[in-house]
Design a protein around this nucleic acid. Structure first.
Length: 939
RNA sequence: GCGCAUGUGGCGUAAUUGGUAGCCGUGCCAGACUUAGGAUCUGGUGCCGAAAGGCGUGGGGGUUCGAGUCCCUCCAUGCGCACCA
């Protein structure tokens, strides 16, 4: 008996922790040294563009949830390269943004410095996972070399207008030409509230420079306007609609109020229809498309004017249901509607005043919270139904929104639930135009009813009457067909420091673009990041910078973080170009992103803005495609799996989960990293926090301390964050990569649990052992493989190809395991199997694959090999074991040649013992034989 | 409330065209080896039942020789929108 025992790994090149570390570091260095991830445009090769949503480099670093999508895209990129594609797979950083600025205010660290440090940290973490990014193409949105072009694109948008005739962006010069020659008759002002609505060519020529600029501003795709914005006092900034959730800020949850401010806006509403139509030709998930459609919120109907019984004023409403015109029992204006004061009768003035005060005193949050509450006031005025002359009372109510449609509605209580509730609440009588479809107690929004009490529409089915009604309305000249969108123009100014400055100068209060040669307008340095207090951002404090000349000033706002992200996928194609944002040649070559992987939280903002910028650049002739992302995959969130300990109240004693009910306890979260499965490492717990140094434990009968658990979001404050660095340290990057893919379908959300990772690690060791003997010697033979061995290999090849094309990575991992299990039990160590086998694994576990590839005698990296060709012949079977089912239940199995005639099979099956037994000797009613699948006998 | 997605063993999941439900992994059980070990190997493991057999993919119904898969309906969970006329 030896006195000292060695583990087997001490003697040989086992796939041990030390060996893994050695192999993985070696190959990461080797890849960098050889520069194998650098790609160039090669016209003769087919391209493939695999993109990750670039991260915001937060101070917290990566947790195991972040790499999920990156690993999937890395597998795709490597696989496509092995298949002969020229693959663009870049990475960069969305480096402007609010958190760095908040951090600067709180800790006095310049955003540039903290951002730089965070990026370093991210890159080091990403580097350990073995991604095949071409880092020479890295972009950082806060880099002046990058944001020069963000500013440049902004100026192109500023210099554009949307021609509704051909539904395309065009240069402002085409618009001025039109104005000079024909006035604006053919191209009405998009903003119907602007004081000048119509002008002739002659009038245009009489306008002053400033007037002309003001008019052009109404058309520009990037324009300045006083708009109702979401002002967040606590953050000292304006927020976009998508940054406001239920009346509070998305970040921080601070109250948000409406406020008028002069802001840059993008006229995204002009593109609403194209953004909607574009969804039909791109491959996004249904829910993603649905979210975008919802956000755009297209509704088709008509605008229609109602005269009042007294006075000249007309109330214009928008309705999608003009077919219900004879069911209008009252009208409702938004409280903010401009006609309210004008039409209110003196007898109702008090009541209306009271209601307006009530509305004014309500915050956005109140309104959101009490959606169901019915409130309103009668103005005393009556409108007249243009078709039957009926007098209809005009009310005001919060439930009509000033910002949508015309801010006024015709209320049809028998067909609209809200109108019905309002009518009942205020005792307004309800006209029934849909007969038995209306019960009197509840509105019925059907479009299928046959109309009654409806004049010229009587007897028509409602959905058919819609067009007839609009035609009649247009014929009478009281309204027209109209499309409305929920989506508003995008606010593009932020009262913030850490963003792109607007590349414009103001003269006489009008903005003028800077010359291209003056770009970038760099962000001035400062150490004061607090807002200047008057609704302007920190840049307003820098008086010399703002008032850089006597008669010109700069904009104190910066662009939102969406700006840099709206086009970064284009810059990757030509990241060092100093003359253009990217050369036409390269843009044409790399073209659309073939696969884009990222989180679903960017559904509306980022994805809509990048689609918009792509469409504008396309219209202006810079791109030959107008959708940026051909396919989008949203990886699921990885949630945390928290662990709880139970402290007996008022003591420092902790009781195990199974017996905690015998005590009065408080549940405390503990660090998941000191818990193995559910068992707490009590010594580590004592060291974890000083408070627990003297903790005592009441253990289970088996002497273990068992924790409680809960699935919740992965967050530092829950102590449930798992850092990929720790997993790599313990198991290696290949195991991490495989395990994250093995967890389940990419798009599904799933909790992170480390149990199960051993299975993946064991697989890799078994895989390694196919190439090595029990002593760790490399023992690949040159023998001819058997048919079974070839079959195992080719089944894997087929599966991996299918799975990557279908983004089903978990199933590939399981197939790798099946194949390795099979080859192990066949004791296969043959080069003709193991060489292609290494290539199939290379996309998933690149380090081990390259090591084995080298041991197989190759000088070049495995990524430059060719993915093995599938030989379907090897997978063909000549016989099949048929399940024999009787009345749908499998009762026996019988082996038949696949080419056996059905009649012969039927004879043999019917004669079989099992069939005799189960059919009770009765003759079969029907025999179904599906070759290669099943035999079913009906008795 | 409306829209979209999802529901399969103790757990993560698989089933590509409607054709043997539960592959792969984990966990658990038993065994081997052993320095009693968070190692390795072997076997078992959907549920009920001693077995024969029966039941089984959120519930109910339908189409079909045959349904996890298609249709209807209900329920649960997640996400999105939320007075949008």
């Amino acid at each position: 008996m030896p006195l000292i025992c060695f583990s087997i790994s001490d003697f040989m090149a086992d796939y041990s922790k030390e060996e893994i570390k050695r192999i993985e570091e070696k190959w990461r260095n080797e890849w960098a040294k050889r520069g194998i991830y650098k790609v160039e445009e090669v016209q003769s090769k087919p391209k493939y563009y695999v993109l990750d949503m670039f991260p915001y480099p937060s101070g917290a670093g990566l947790h195991v949830g972040h790499p999920l999508g990156y690993i999937a895209s890395d597998v795709i990129a490597r696989f496509k390269r092995l298949k002969g594609y020229n693959v663009l797979h870049p990475m960069g950083f969305d480096a402007f943004g609010l958190p760095a600025e908040q951090y600067a205010i709180e800790h006095g660290v310049h955003p540039a410095a903290s951002t730089r440090a965070n990026i370093e940290n991210f890159k080091s973490q990403l580097g350990k996972i073995g991604f095949c990014y071409d880092w020479s193409r890295e972009v950082q949105t806060c880099d002046p070399h990058y944001y020069k072009w963000t500013q440049w694109i902004f100026l192109q948008i500023f210099d554009s207008w949307f021609n509704r005739k051909n539904k395309k962006a065009e240069r402002i010069t085409t618009l001025t030409w039109i104005f000079e020659n024909e006035g604006n008759a053919e191209h009405p002002v998009p903003n119907s509230k602007f004081e000048i609505q119509n002008f002739t060519a002659a009038e245009w020529k009489t306008f002053t420079q400033k007037q002309r600029q003001e008019i052009l501003m109404q058309y520009r795709l990037a324009y300045l306007a006083y708009t109702d914005v979401n002002w967040c006092e606590a953050l000292g900034t304006v927020l976009a609609n998508d940054e406001v959730i239920n009346g509070v800020s998305y970040r921080g949850g601070f109250p948000v109020v409406k406020r008028q401010m002069q802001q840059w806006n993008l006229r995204i509403t002009e593109y609403a229809d194209r953004l909607l139509k574009g969804l039909d030709e791109i491959d996004f998930s249904d829910s993603m498309k649905e979210i975008q459609r919802n956000w755009i919120g297209k509704s088709v109907g008509c605008e229609l004017d109602f005269s009042l019984s007294h006075g000249e004023a007309k109330i214009r409403v928008f309705t999608t249901r003009p077919d219900t015109i004879f069911g209008v029992d009252f009208m409702v204006l938004a409280p903010e509607h401009e006609l309210v004061k004008q039409i209110t009768t003196s007898s109702q003035a008090g009541e209306v005043e009271k209601y307006l005060n009530y509305v004014a005193g309500r915050s956005e949050i109140d309104r959101m919270a009490e959606v169901k509450k019915i409130t309103g006031a009668f103005t005393g005025a009556y409108a007249v139904n243009p078709f039957n002359g009926k007098k209809i009372p005009v009310w005001i109510s919060e439930y009509v929104l000033a910002g949508y449609g015309t801010g006024a509605i015709m209320a049809v209580p028998c067909g609209d639930e809200r109108d019905h509730k309002f009518a009942k609440h205020f005792n307004i009588s309800v006209t029934n135009i849909i007969g038995s479809h209306y019960t009197g107690t509840e509105a019925n929004p059907t479009k299928e009813a046959t109309l009654e009490n409806s004049g010229f529409l009587n007897g028509m089915v409602m959905h058919k009457a819609i067009d007839v009604a609009i035609d009649e309305i247009e014929k009478k000249g009281i309204g027209k067909r109209q499309v409305n969108y929920k989506m508003r123009d995008a606010g593009w100014s932020r009262q913030r420091y850490w963003g792109e400055p607007f590349p414009v100068v103001y003269r006489d209060d009008m903005p003028y673009p800077m010359n291209e040669t003056e770009l970038p307008l760099t962000l001035p340095d400062t150490d004061n990041f607090k807002s200047s207090g008057n609704g302007e951002g920190p840049l307003a404090n820098l008086k010399d910078w703002i008032h850089f000349s006597d008669n010109a000033k700069r904009d104190s706002n910066t662009m939102p973080t969406h700006a840099g992200a709206a086009w970064y996928f284009l810059r990757y194609m030509d990241p060092h170009n100093t003359k253009e944002f990217a050369s036409k040649e390269k843009l044409n070559y790399w073209n659309q992103v073939d696969v884009y992987i990222g989180g679903s939280e960017h559904a509306v903002a980022h994805l809509l803005y990048s689609r918009l910028w792509t469409k504008i650049l396309h219209d202006l002739g810079y791109l030959n495609f107008d959708e940026p992302f051909k396919k989008l995959i949203n990886q699921g969130k990885i949630t945390g799996d928290s662990r709880f300990v139970y402290r007996v109240r008022g003591t420092n004693t902790f009781v195990s989960y199974g017996i905690k009910d015998q005590h009065e306890t408080d549940a405390l979260r503990t660090d998941v990293n000191i818990v193995n499965g559910l068992e707490l490492d009590t010594e580590a717990f004592k060291k974890w926090k000083p408070d627990f140094a003297n903790a005592e434990f009441i253990l289970e009968e088996d002497g273990k301390y068992i924790c409680g658990s809960a699935i919740e979001k992965m967050s530092k404050s829950y102590f449930n964050v798992v850092n990929p660095d720790d997993i790599i340290d313990k198991y290696g990057a290949d195991t991490l990569r495989l395990y994250e893919m093995f967890l389940g379908p990419l798009e599904a959300s799933k909790p992170w649990s480390t149990s199960g990772i051993d299975g993946v690690y064991k697989f890799l060791r078994r895989f390694w052992n196919l190439y090595h003997d029990a002593n760790g010697n490399f023992i690949v033979s040159n023998e001819e493989p058997t048919r079974d061995e070839l079959k195992a290999l080719h089944r894997l090849i087929k599966k991996v190809e299918y799975d990557v094309e279908h983004y089903s990575f978990n199933t590939s991992v399981s197939e790798f395991m099946i194949c390795a299990n099979e080859l192990s039990s066949l004791k296969c160590n043959k080069r003709l199997i193991l060489e292609p086998l290494a290539i199939t694994l290379a996309a998933y576990a690149p380090h081990i694959a390259d090591e084995l590839w080298q041991k197989l005698g190759h000088e070049d990296c495995i990524l430059n090999a060719t993915f093995p060709a599938l030989n379907e012949e090897l997978l063909k079977e000549n016989a099949f074991e048929y399940p024999i089912s009787i009345n749908g239940k499998v009762r026996a199995k019988m082996n038949f040649a696949l080419d056996m005639p059905k009649a012969d099979m039927e004879k043999l099956v019917l004669a079989s013992e099992a069939v005799q037994k189960w059919s009770d000797g009765k003759p079969p009613k029907k025999v179904i034989i599906v070759p290669g699948k099943i035999v079913n006998i009906v008795v």
